[in-house]
Design a protein around this nucleic acid. Structure first.
Length: 1099
RNA sequence: GGGCUUGUAGCUCAGGUGGUUAGAGCGCUACACUGAUAAUGUAGAGGUCCGUGGUUCGAGUCCACGCAGGCCCA
């Protein structure tokens, strides 16, 4: 059995081959079954929608998911991964409408709801095959055979069950939200309809800046501006920006000329006061004067104003709760108006939101049936309670042709306010305003019925449990998600659509009785009753579809015998996906045991844009119904942008095709690039060159290292079957790389455990390229190809093998294909592991006894010293092949000397030097340099650091010596003296006179650059070896082929060099003989610096 | 407009708790090495650490205010 040797490497080919292997051998299934009975690690798949094609960002998101599932499997957990599909919702509807060329208006007319929904059902899985293909090609292991699908009957039944639980807990209620509404058409408008071109048009409205009188203060008013004066009768609060500056101004009302104090934003004064009036004195002012004097008498921040109470402006109707207070509003600006915003919770979405958050009530009236409603009816008229203006349309456009009054309601209200000293300014104002696309008349923002989940009732618990979730990055949990929870409003469940989960609530016509249905069984029973009552003609079957229009055809009977109709709403699709922990198992109707061990999730991961989507709905449902989190760890990953940092879009043509990327560069390089380049939660600027770089630098190096191993291991027949060589019997560099390897295991494991895949990838990559390839293999090459198959060679093979197989395991979660190939290629020969795939293996356990910190330190010293020597050689243009006699190392301390001595041989061979000589103080060749220790000095002397460090830099040799000998030195400062100790400074060796010196930090190396005759001869011999090796290669000789070398007699120096190093040359080049001949007729000419040699090689 | 987030070399990114010479890889330039060779090593050039103020003996790091990009929300 041989290790597989490759000619070149085709990354996509590796993936194809391994993928086929996985399929044929059911590796994924085995990786789950293998861990049967072990602790479970629960992962929830956030369902994608298959009505669009997958993009490169899905590769990113799914790589993150895959990594931790694979890692946990290696760690011995059983990780079930049920796939899923999100199938309901507006995007599907829009796509269907586009395909059929219809609008929402046509549903029920040109096409039945039944046909429409059938079409949605077909469309939603349009690209399923493409998704499945990508899933496999990128190596994302998820169960595609038994996915949950949100439109499935069982899935929807669980949704109904959950809704009923909420209903029974009193957490489901009907309320209202402010939505665009067209009184002329009698219907609400979706934001989609409002975004039609031409809906926003410039209109001229009468605007009022009203005076709201502060409670308990004479003549003091808040000023608030509105473009809809008709809403003032519904005012219950005033909003200010907390950070905005406000002023109280003394002035006269321009209509009544009463002396008033008004409060408004400082930045808005220019709009209300004429600068020229600044000089006018209050005494000189007479009624009717154009210039009205004003004076700032007080200033505040917005937050100082909050909580202040004022008197109701138009007291027609009592509020239904606390009201008439100043509250904070995040939307308040000083762009226009007064910087104080009039709030009417029934006629503005912002208004409603901030009022709710501040606990402010609304102005509501009861209709004939006793239902609360706003002060404007559905036709757009003031209700009777607004006695002065009852029955008047709030917009003149709502009157029939020719019936509109001369003065619009806004004008009439403005006049009333002027007369009552409640208006500070009235003027016409032109601004864009939305219009109904059907009637061309202005839209009202109006409260419309909706069903809500009372999330606010559980706010504290939601916040509290969120703190137990491990968010990556943390800021998304505390910031974006945490703030969202802090400012929570109730979850509006209602959607007026067709393709989705229907709300399972039936209500009697007078709305006095309600029923919420929680299962199909229950529905059947209720229908049975309805049949008896005569409201239904027949019972429903077992295969009843819970979608519209079928549920709409069901009428139930109330306890008192009334007919009940289903509330026509569908529920928010986010409820669909947030309910997946339960619904994917059809819990509680089936699979209770599976659910119990798979709730909550240990881990989920999705884009950060899901924060208020899936992350929230998962959390909300779990907390409200099960008083538990839905997930313990979550990665909120960022976006994948193009290489210039722009958003990818198909329209702009900068979108990366994931299939093409995988086909060209393979999934391993693609995944490794995405993960190693930036943390998943940072945005990734996807650059194809980066993928290529990862391919070359990491996978290329790793593959080269494996190939190197395979080449020689095959020659020697190494199969790891003849006993493990004890660590203590291995070489210094073997023990070093194994120490580094075990340190690596520890760090990589910690990174995975901490959900830091980027750190893990970088650690593995750095180890592979820097430690293993560029240092260990380079230094030990000869051990692999020279000499017989002895214990030392065996140790080298075993060491390299262990490193490679461990890298395969550590890296397999990130690069599942290549690492599996590597693992299998290695294990095929040795059979050390029982696993047939790396994904069935166990995560490596670090061997603490092998980690030797001191060894790692001294090897690091060897690397640094070598690097310095290399740079000195470079400086003097002396090539490494030319041996040099010695280097000088100033001894920093005893440990330094001991550590360097241990790796001395290594340094000598690496940099081709004969000897290391240590020098210390007594040698007298060292020149010391002293530098202030700022950290220490700063703590002790603070402001005097500058002067002291100036003195230290000027220390003489004597002063340094004194400080070293006595550990104290008194320094004179301009004011007083300080006594310094050795701790206050750092002493380095800077220079060695007469030597070529280089230093880095405290480390200094001096190189003897004189080349003796003997050294020169040796250099020539080494050069010759090099040239002969090249010739051998050119001749196509195998490594083990023996040769004869004949050389024509040359200069005395060269001849002597050859004679003196004959044995060395023969040994290195596998030569049986080396002969110097007087005349060589057919040799090749070799140039070595200034020497020219004629050489002939015979095999 | 609000919340969160990012800004360090041409590019991609590191830079506990503040410490004076800000690093790595790629790319570029030069040189070297040569039984890992479509590999490798060494060196060089390249920085207003987004800006402005502040705290401090000392700020890439802490604070404030801005600017630019991104996401979510309005």
């Amino acid at each position: 059995m041989k290790y597989k040797e490759y000619k070149g490497l085709n990354y996509a080919g590796v993936a194809d081959r391994i993928l086929k292997y996985w399929k044929e051998n059911k590796i994924f299934e085995k990786s789950v079954d293998l861990r049967e009975g072990h602790e479970t690690f629960t992962f929830y798949e956030g369902p994608p929608s298959a009505n669009g094609t997958p993009g490169i960002h899905h590769v990113m998101a799914r790589a993150v998911k895959d990594i931790f599932c694979r890692y946990k499997t290696l760690k011995g957990f059983q990780v079930k991964r049920k796939g899923g599909w999100d199938t309901h919702g507006l995007p599907v509807e829009l796509q269907v409408e586009k395909e059929l060329g219809i609008t929402k208006e046509d549903i029920g007319k040109k096409i039945s709801v039944e046909e429409y929904n059938q079409k949605c059902r077909e469309t939603v899985m349009k690209y399923k095959d493409e998704w499945d293909d990508l899933t496999q090609k990128m190596g994302y292991w998820v169960d595609l055979d038994n996915p949950y699908v949100t439109f499935d009957r069982e899935y929807m039944e669980t949704l109904w069950y959950l809704l009923k639980q909420l209903y029974d807990k009193g957490l489901l209620y009907k309320g209202y939200t402010i939505q665009p509404y067209s009184p002329a058409a009698g219907t609400g408008l979706s934001s989609h309809e409002l975004n039609q071109p031409g809906t926003y048009r410039d209109v001229k409205d009468t605007t009022v800046t009203a005076q709201f009188k502060l409670k308990g203060e004479e003549n003091t008013h808040f000023l608030a501006w509105t473009t809809t004066p008709w809403t003032l009768a519904a005012n219950t609060a005033l909003a200010v920006g907390e950070k905005i500056d406000y002023v109280k101004v003394k002035t006269y009302n321009p209509y009544t000329f009463e002396l008033v104090y008004v409060i408004l934003a400082k930045d808005r004064m220019g709009e209300y006061f004429n600068e020229k009036a600044k000089e006018v004195s209050f005494e000189d002012f007479k009624e009717g004067d154009k210039l009205i004097p004003f004076k700032i008498v007080e200033e505040y921040k917005g937050r100082d104003l909050t909580g202040i109470e004022y008197e109701q402006l138009l007291p027609y109707v009592e509020p239904d709760g606390p009201a008439f207070k100043v509250i904070p509003g995040d939307f308040v600006s000083t762009e226009d108006g007064t910087g104080i915003v009039h709030i009417s919770p029934t006629f503005g979405a912002d208004d409603q939101r901030v009022a709710r958050q501040a606990g402010i009530g609304a102005i509501l009236v009861k209709d004939e049936e006793g239902n609360a409603g706003p002060i404007v009816d559905k036709q757009g008229r003031y209700v009777k309670e607004i006695s002065d203006f009852a029955g008047i349309y709030v917009k003149n456009e709502y009157y029939k042709e020719g019936e509109a009054p001369e003065r619009s309601l806004d004008v009439q209200i403005a006049i009333k306010l002027k007369e009552e000293n409640k208006a500070f300014k009235v003027e016409k104002y032109e601004h864009p305003y939305p219009h109904c696309w059907r009637t061309d008349k202005p839209v009202l923002y109006y409260p419309l019925d909706s069903w809500f989940i009372k999330t606010t009732a559980m706010k504290d618990r939601l916040v509290e449990l969120n703190k137990t979730i491990n968010w990556k990055p943390e800021s998304t949990g505390t910031g974006r998600f945490g703030n969202w929870l802090e400012n929570l409003v109730d979850w509006n469940l209602s959607r007026s659509r067709f393709w989705g989960t229907p709300l399972p609530i039936w209500v009697t016509e007078d709305r006095t009785e309600q029923k919420c249905i929680g299962s199909i069984e229950e529905l059947k029973a209720e229908v049975q009753k309805a049949v008896k009552a005569g409201f239904m003609s027949e019972p429903i079957g077992d295969d009843f579809d819970l979608h519209r229009p079928y549920v709409d055809r069901i009428f139930l009977v109330s306890d008192s015998g009334q007919k009940m109709y289903r509330e026509p709403d569908l529920i928010d699709v986010w409820f669909d996906s947030g309910a997946m922990p339960y619904a994917q198992w059809h819990y509680p109707f089936e699979n209770k045991d599976i659910f119990d061990t798979n709730f909550p999730a240990d881990f989920i991961a999705e884009g950060v844009d899901q924060t208020r989507g899936w992350f929230f709905t998962l959390h909300a449902i779990a907390v409200m119904l099960y008083d538990n989190v839905a997930f313990k760890n979550v990665i909120a990953n960022g976006l994948v942008l193009d290489k210039n940092g722009n958003k990818m879009s198909k329209r702009l043509g900068n979108a990366i095709d994931p299939f093409k990327t995988l086909a060209e560069h393979g999934p391993d390089a693609t995944r490794w690039y995405m993960i190693s380049n930036a943390n998943p939660w940072d945005n990734l600027k996807f650059n194809m060159e980066g993928v290529v770089e990862v391919q070359r630098r990491f996978f290329g190096t790793l593959h080269n290292t494996y190939s190197f191993f395979a080449l020689y291991a095959n020659l020697d027949g190494f199969n790891y079957k003849d006993g493990e060589i004890a660590n203590g019997d291995r070489t210094e560099s073997d023990r070093w790389i194994l120490s580094k390897l075990n340190s690596l295991i520890e760090k990589v494991e910690a990174s995975y455990e901490d959900y830091e895949p980027t750190k893990a990838a970088r650690l593995i990559q750095d180890f592979t390229t820097d430690d293993l390839s560029n240092w260990y293999v380079r230094l030990n090459r000869k051990r692999f190809w020279r000499g017989e198959y002895n214990a030392d060679k065996k140790a080298a093979y075993q060491t390299l093998y262990t490193c490679l197989v461990t890298i395969a395991k550590l890296g397999s979660p990130i690069a599942p294909f290549y690492m599996d190939q590597l693992f299998q290629d290695l294990n095929a020969v040795t059979g050390l592991e029982g696993a047939e795939s790396v994904h069935l293996a166990d995560f490596p356990e670090k061997d603490e006894s092998v980690i030797d910190v001191d060894l790692e330190q001294r090897m690091s010293l060897a690397q640094n010293i070598s690097s310095l020597v290399h740079s000195l050689r470079k400086k003097h243009k002396i090539k490494v092949r030319q041996p040099l006699s010695k280097i000088l190392l100033p001894v920093i301390n005893d440990q330094f000397k001991r550590q360097v001595s241990a790796v001395e041989e290594l340094i000598l061979s690496e940099v081709n030097i004969k000897e290391v000589e240590f020098v210390d103080d007594e040698s007298g060749v060292l020149v010391k340099h002293v530098k202030p220790n700022f950290r220490k000095l700063g703590q002790e002397y603070g402001p005097r650091v500058k002067e002291i460090s100036g003195k230290i830099n000027q220390f003489s040799t004597d002063e340094i010596a004194q400080l070293e000998n006595e550990n104290k030195l008194v320094v004179e400062l301009s004011e007083g003296t300080v006594e310094l100790t050795l701790e206050d400074v750092e002493i380095n060796y800077q220079d060695i006179p007469g030597w070529s010196v280089a230093s880095e930090g405290r480390l200094t190396v001096a190189l003897d650059i004189t080349i003796s005759d003997e050294l020169r001869k040796e250099g020539i011999a080494r050069d010759l070896v090099n040239r002969v090796q090249n010739l051998r290669k050119d001749m196509g000789l195998e490594v083990q082929d023996k040769i004869k070398i004949n050389i024509e007699r040359n200069t005395d120096l060269v001849n002597a060099a050859l004679e003196a190093n004959k044995e060395y040359i023969c040994n290195e080049t596998q030569a049986l003989s080396l002969n110097i001949l007087d005349n060589l007729s057919d040799g090749s000419e070799l140039e070595m610096d200034e020497h020219k040699l004629k050489v002939k090689i015979e095999a």
